[in-house]
């Protein structure tokens, strides 16, 4: 029972993130949040299965993912700051330079 609740939670989290990513067409910060959510759902899985298999590697992996996610969001936020300086907006629909 606990297993299915946890796996369902993580699935819901991923799906929410995907939907948020696809239907939101402008706001870059929301996109970043969605990406972080995908990371989190993966983390939940790791921690749960580490407990399930009685093995510590999964939790170590989760810690590492948190670090990587932090670094990744730092880079993404920095890019957004730069973009704001350039275009005075964080609207992704304004990035049309490579449109074919």
């Amino acid at each position: 029972m606990l297993r299915s609740i946890i796996i369902l939670t993580s699935m819901m989290l991923v799906l929410t993130a995907f939907v948020g990513m696809i239907i939101n067409r402008r706001n870059l910060i929301v996109m970043l949040l969605c990406v972080e959510m995908i990371f989190l759902s993966a983390n939940i899985n790791f921690v749960y299965f580490s407990r399930f298999h009685q093995h510590v590697h999964g939790q170590v992996m989760a810690l590492m993912i948190i670090v990587v996610a932090a670094a990744e969001s730092a880079v993404a936020l920095a890019l957004m700051v730069l973009m704001y300086r350039q275009y005075h907006t964080v609207d992704s629909s304004k990035l049309v330079n490579i449109r074919g």
């Binding site: 870059l28 990035l95 074919g100």
Partner: peptide, 20 residues
């Protein structure tokens, strides 16, 4: 090349949808 370049829509969410 001109035809194929239309794939580049520059909508991030479409890219993401295709990727997923």
């Amino acid at each position: 090349a001109e035809k194929f370049s239309r794939v580049q829509t520059s909508y991030l969410n479409r890219y993401f949808a295709i990727m997923s």
